[in-house]
Design a protein around this nucleic acid. Structure first.
Length: 881
RNA sequence: GAGCCACUAACUCAGCGGGAGAGUGCUACCUUGACAGGGUAGAAGUCGUAGGUUCAAAUCCUACGUGGCUCACCA
């Protein structure tokens, strides 16, 4: 279908070249589109929609790579996979960016007006959406673009309205005047979780308010003295002896001169401070509650931009912090303020703008959370529960749900879903509905929009056509199989998706939720703009390729843990990719003219062939199991070891014996094994490193258009031979001994040495004979002797292995002292090992209580260690003669 | 105040009941016909501390210490 030309691979892996056009090949081939194919099991994931505010960061790269790995494996396993892409309009964040851009041209959103502003914002969105898609492509994400969604799309907006109206009708959405978190910079309300608390060194101001009609004063303290302008009471504990006589009396509020009452309320802690508290119902949530109980007046002293209003007397027009300064000075002069203490306390900041959040009396829309939370908590007690991975995050989630507070959902922005509520111009009657009122000219729609998370909460089902429950995608792909996200948004998003889904679909939104940590810099600090320590995933791809970045992200840590970014580790991954590249080059060089049909494993397999095929089986089992469990680190490591150690270091080397031989049939079998193992390995590696695997796979003898839709490897029990495994273990041990013994005498590789190998089983002798050429790399051809009986020269070094002994005639090669010392050291080692095992076996408790298999293994070890000990001892005695 | 996580080789991290592992770095040797961004061999860890459970503990339990995080906070 495409003009893939067979060409030899370049000697070095070049990710840029490999990755260049691959993504368009995949998308044009529509390999990533879900087919609604009823012959297959559906499998679905929805992407956590990134904000259309800018570049994707490493957190996104991590998150989406995991989803891609899962999707790709499932697709290869034959599932009808839907991985649905999309983006979030990100209300405050985007609006702030757009306004910032407008400010550069010295215009405000009010200059433009709502409609024009929205147009500008949409333009912004389009620009960034393209940008994001480009980045997804660079990372190789197997997304189904035919189903891409945006939270402000018509369908999704319909879902938002449906949910709002339904909840309103159920009494679960209400409008009212309460203390909310106000961000004076962006001038909007925030929900509780959009406020970040930071410990700040502040001041604690102590003041005395004069009691009316007496010389007495009452002492109070505050961290926000400017709010005293809005005080409408002083509260004391009803049982506080000190203040009994004052309850019901009035104090004169300094500066303002207002008479305010002293009330008694349980809320007050007698032990803290003076035991008397100033009450500002319009600027503090606790004070608001007390105000409710005592029917106090609510006096707002600030404008929405954080400047003081007409109730602030002479401070009107001042910024809240300027006012604080001024008021402190004035009160000090009056003697009302008599002490200032340094005080560390938590101050709330807007998650988006960073501005100090003002608790502020305001009319907003809220979701009554208790009934919704209760249902979600109940769900976790059933078999239908959402499965958190790692499990501990379920506790985090439940704890939040169980202590839920009402959710303030209105935002004083333009960019978002406008609240479907209208007020009658004359009667001020409230109408809530999906359709605007008929006599629209008499009504005005609520100016506010909904919290961004209100729409994201519906994402798993709104993207699939809900509220039209007959939509094909909704019926087939909902609930989704897994959601992947960071622990930092469990409350913002995961929790809200669950309760909305439970309420509206009566189902969980996803079966599993895979929670990952945060990406940090090499020193373990959070990556942030202010620190300037952020790493752009596109830079990493530029330098090392997407596959290296992906593999690093997937294997760098275990589920739920944070991940530190190290360039060196990405580089190490590049080395791995290069290894695969070169091993494949070798394989391809030996497969000239070979087609997929030529791969034939029915020939006579040699021990190394059987060995690698068995190892392949083990690896398939292990990788499949661990990828399914989201243990990407474990699976990745197993792939690494299989490819580097088993396939490259052992199999390829051993295969050379056959490949370089004149035996055509054995050569053909080896080529087939090589092709088969490489093919299967590439398939397993594909979800981890999609680009390089596709590139190589296309060059290999293969069947099918793309590895993305090739079938996932399965275990072939035919290729499992325990006896061969044991033999090969011993052969490999013998070969290692040869290397080892050479290293001991510091013989240069270029200088071949004499070597004698005495084996004690026929099978090993045979195998070593077959691989004689391999051993000849280290030994003189003429003197290499592999027999069951050999004459060992008097002066020789030896290595003892199970089933064989390797001897190196010394002939003045090295000094005896060194060799004796070496053997003594080894003897000591085996002595200790034997003692340890014997101690264990003589322990009655162990023999009686440990599982039989464990005891049996220990007995085997005892024999083996004893053998080694004796052999070393013999050699030592001989040398010491 | 409540909870969670981490503490394992110089560094970054796995392992989570049966004799300490990987990558990087380090040492020595090697241009062996896929790869010197490679190969071979090697050094390197009282698995934070102290108790306990167990025939057996890095792994389970309890305290404590040190970092980090989340939630809730008294003005």
């Amino acid at each position: 279908m495409e003009n893939e030309q067979k060409q030899t691979l370049a000697p070095k892996y070049n990710p840029k070249q490999v990755e260049a056009d691959r993504y368009s090949f995949w998308t044009e081939g529509k390999f990533f589109e879900a087919h609604n194919d009823s012959d297959k099991e559906p499998f679905s994931i929805v992407i956590p929609p990134p904000n259309v505010t800018g570049r994707l960061h490493l957190g996104h790269a991590w998150d989406t790579t995991m989803q891609d790995t899962i999707s790709r494996m499932k697709r290869m396993q034959g599932y009808d996979v839907l991985w649905l892409p999309g983006m979030d309009h990100a209300g405050i964040a985007t609006q702030a960016k757009v306004e910032e851009k407008l400010r550069e041209d010295k215009i405000s959103r009010y200059d433009l007006g709502r409609e024009k502003f929205m147009e500008t914002a949409w333009e912004w969105k389009e620009e960034y959406a393209d940008f994001i898609r480009e980045q997804w492509g660079k990372m190789g994400l197997s997304l189904d673009y035919s189903r891409e969604r945006f939270t402000l799309d018509t369908g999704l907006s319909d879902a938002v309205e449906e949910v709002f109206v339904k909840l309103y009708e159920k009494g679960l959405i209400y409008r009212g005047q309460y203390i909310i978190n106000w961000d004076p910079q962006t001038q909007t309300a925030l929900s509780d979780i959009e406020v970040e608390y930071e410990e700040i060194e502040g001041k604690f101001y102590h003041m005395r308010y004069p009691v009316q009609g007496s010389k007495e004063t009452i002492e109070i303290a505050t961290t926000r003295p400017e709010t005293m302008l809005g005080d409408t009471a002083v509260a004391v504990h009803p049982e506080d002896e000190r203040y009994q006589h004052l309850i019901g009396k009035k104090v004169i509020l300094p500066i303002v001169g207002r008479e305010i009452e002293i009330v008694a309320d349980d809320y007050v802690d007698m032990e803290f401070g003076s035991g008397a508290v100033k009450i500002t119902p319009a600027h503090d949530p606790n004070d608001f509650d007390i105000g409710e109980r005592h029917h106090l007046e609510r006096v707002l002293v600030m404008h929405e931009d954080g400047t003081m209003n007409e109730n602030a007397d002479k401070y009107e027009g001042m910024d809240r912090f300027e006012c604080r300064k001024a008021i402190v000075e004035d009160l000090q002069t009056d003697g009302v303020l008599f002490d200032i203490e340094t005080h560390f306390h938590q101050v709330g900041h807007s998650e988006r703008s960073g501005a100090v959040v003002e608790p502020y009396l305001s009319t907003q829309w809220f979701v009554n959370m208790q009934p919704l939370a209760d249902a979600s908590v109940e769900l976790q007690k059933t078999d239908e529960k959402v499965n958190f991975v790692p499990a501990r995050f379920e506790q985090t989630y439940l704890h939040w749900m169980e202590n839920i507070r009402d959710w303030c959902i209105s935002r004083q922005l333009w960019w978002g879903h406008r609240i479907p509520a209208w007020y009658h111009k004359e009667t001020n009657e409230l109408y809530v509905g999906k359709e605007a009122p008929k006599d629209i000219e008499n009504w005005e729609q609520d100016e506010d929009v909904l919290d961004t998370w209100f729409s994201s909460a519906l994402w798993p089902f709104s993207t699939m056509g809900w509220p039209d429950i007959d939509q094909k995608d909704f019926k087939r792909y909902f609930p989704t199989d897994v959601l992947v996200t960071g622990y930092d948004i469990i409350f913002f998003w995961v929790a809200r998706m669950i309760f909305q889904s439970v309420e509206f679909t009566k189902e969980k939104p996803f079966k599993d939720v895979l929670i990952h940590g945060l990406i940090r810099d090499a020193e373990g600090r959070k990556m942030s703009k202010s620190l300037g320590n952020g790493v752009d995933p596109m830079d990493v791809i530029e330098q090392y390729g997407a596959d290296s970045l992906r593999y690093f992200l997937l294997t760098g840590t275990s589920p739920g843990q944070d991940l530190r970014f190290h360039w060196e580790k990405v580089e190490a991954t590049w080395n791995f990719a290069n290894k695969i590249w070169n091993a494949s080059r070798f394989a391809l060089m030996n497969m000239e003219g070979m087609t997929f049909e030529d791969i034939d494993l029915t020939g006579e397999l040699q021990a190394p062939d059987k060995w690698i095929l068995t190892r392949l089986n083990d690896t398939i089992t292990h990788i499949t199991k661990n990828t399914d469990k989201y243990e990407f680190g474990e699976a990745g490591r197993a792939l690494y070891n299989f490819i580097w150690d088993d396939f490259c270091d052992w199999y390829i080397e051993l295969a050379k014996v056959s490949l370089y031989s004149e035996n055509a049939s054995s050569k053909q079998t080896t080529r087939s094994v090589l092709a088969h193992v490489l093919d299967q390995t590439l398939r397993m590696l594909h979800p981890y490193m999609p680009f390089i695997t596709e590139e190589i796979w296309q060059q290999l003898p293969h069947e099918g258009y793309s590895i993305t839709v090739a079938s996932w490897p399965f275990v072939n029990p035919q290729f499992h031979d325990e006896t061969t495994m044991e033999t090969m273990e011993k052969v490999m041990e013998a070969i290692k001994a040869v290397r080892n013994i050479r290293a001991e005498v510091d013989t240069p590789m270029s200088k071949k040495v004499d070597m004698l190998i005495k084996t004690n089983t026929n099978q090993i002798t045979e195998q070593l004979e077959v691989n004689r050429h391999y051993l000849e790399r280290f030994c003189n051809t003429e003197t290499l002797s592999i027999q069951e009986e050999i004459t060992v020269p008097e002066q020789a070094m030896s290595a003892v292995i199970t089933g064989a002994e390797v001897f190196l005639p010394l002939e003045g090669l090295i000094d005896f002292e060194k060799e004796i010392a070496r053997l003594e050291k080894e003897l000591e080692k085996w002595k200790k090992e034997v003692e340890l095992v014997q101690k264990k076996l003589s322990n009655k408790g162990f023999v009686d209580k440990a599982p039989a298999s464990v005891v049996e293994a220990e007995r085997k070890k005892e024999v083996e260690y004893q053998e080694k000990y004796t052999a070393v001892e013999d050699r030592l005695k001989e040398l010491q003669k």
